[in-house]
C-alpha cells in the first residue's frame, strides 16, 4: 500500500457530512449576508455611484463580495474541521492511523475547498438575481476561485492546528481577515486612492486576490492577473510548508 485512498475518502466524506449537518450555518448564512451586501451596495447605492473602469458600481463590488464570503468561510470551516478533533481528543485516531500528511490534507482541505467553491458559486448565482453582469473569463474565474479557496482553506487548517482555544479560532477571521478584505478594494478601486494610501494598500495581500478575481469578471483590474496568480500560489506554498513542518515535527500534535 503506497497511498491510503480509503482514508482520504473517509475523511472527505466525513467532512462533507459535517457541512451537510450544519448546512444553514455554513452555507445559508453567508449567502444571506452577502445577498444583503449586494442589495445595499448594488441596487440601493450603486445607481448613485460612478462607474469604475467602465464597470457599473453594482457589478464592480460583486467579485469582492464573493471573495469576502469565500475567504471567511474557508478559514473558519477548515480551521474548525481540524480543531474539533483536537478539542474532543478524537485526533488520537488520525495520529495513529496509517496516513501521511498529504492524505490528511487531501481529505480535510479537499472537503473544505469543495464546500468553499460551492458556496462561491451559490453566491455568484444569487448576486446575479439582483445585479446584471457578465463574466469575461468563466474558466479562469472558476480556476482562480479554486486557487483562492485552496489557499485560505490551507490557512484555516493551519490556524486549526495552531489554535489552543475556540477564542483564537474566531479572532483571526474577525480581527485579521475581515478588515484586510474590506480594505482590500472590495468596495473601491485601489487605483483611485491617493498615492500614499495606495502604497499602504498594496502591502495587503488580499488586494491582489480581489483584483485578480475582478479581472476574470471584467477583463480589467488595477493589478496584472499574473501577479494575482503568483500571490495565490505563494499563499498556498507558505501554508503547505508550515503544515508539513507541523506534521513532521509533531508540534502541537504529538507528545
Amino acid at each position: 500500500m503506497t497511498f491510503n485512498v480509503p482514508a482520504i475518502r473517509a475523511i472527505y466524506l466525513f467532512e462533507l457530512h459535517r457541512t451537510w449537518r450544519t448546512l444553514f450555518q455554513s452555507i445559508a448564512s453567508p449567502v444571506i449576508s452577502t445577498s444583503l451586501y449586494v442589495i445595499v451596495f448594488g441596487t440601493a447605492i450603486g445607481p448613485q455611484m460612478a462607474a469604475i473602469d467602465g464597470v457599473p458600481y453594482a457589478a464592480f463590488v460583486v467579485p469582492g463580495l464573493i471573495l469576502l464570503a469565500v475567504l471567511t468561510e474557508s478559514v473558519s470551516n477548515a480551521s474548525f474541521g481540524i480543531y474539533l478533533p483536537r478539542f474532543t481528543g478524537t485526533i488520537y485516531e488520525l495520529l495513529s492511523a496509517p496516513i501521511s500528511v498529504g492524505e490528511v490534507l487531501l481529505g480535510y482541505v479537499g472537503a473544505a475547498v469543495t464546500k468553499s467553491v460551492l458556496l462561491g458559486l451559490i453566491i455568484l448565482g444569487t448576486a446575479r438575481l439582483f445585479v446584471t453582469f457578465s463574466i469575461a473569463h468563466p474558466l479562469a474565474m472558476l480556476a482562480f476561485l479554486v486557487l483562492v479557496a485552496l489557499g485560505f482553506c490551507l490557512l484555516g487548517f493551519l490556524l486549526g492546528l495552531w489554535a489552543d482555544g475556540f477564542e483564537r479560532l474566531q479572532i483571526v477571521p474577525a480581527l485579521v481577515l475581515t478588515p484586510l478584505t474590506f480594505l482590500g478594494g472590495t468596495f473601491y478601486s485601489v487605483a483611485a486612492l491617493p498615492p500614499v494610501w495606495r502604497a499602504v494598500t498594496m502591502l495587503n495581500p488580499i488586494v491582489y486576490l480581489i483584483e485578480g478575481f475582478r479581472w476574470t469578471f471584467f477583463g480589467t483590474a488595477s493589478v496584472h492577473i499574473g501577479v494575482s496568480v503568483f500571490m495565490a500560489l505563494a499563499l498556498i506554498c507558505a501554508c503547505l510548508g508550515a503544515i508539513v513542518f507541523i506534521f513532521r515535527t509533531g508540534r502541537r500534535l504529538r507528545a
Partner: peptide, 11 residues
C-alpha cells in the same frame, strides 16, 4: 465505518 476507512480498509 469511518475508522475502518481511515486505516485503509475497504468498506
Amino acid at each position: 465505518s469511518f475508522s475502518r476507512g481511515l486505516f485503509g480498509k475497504r468498506r
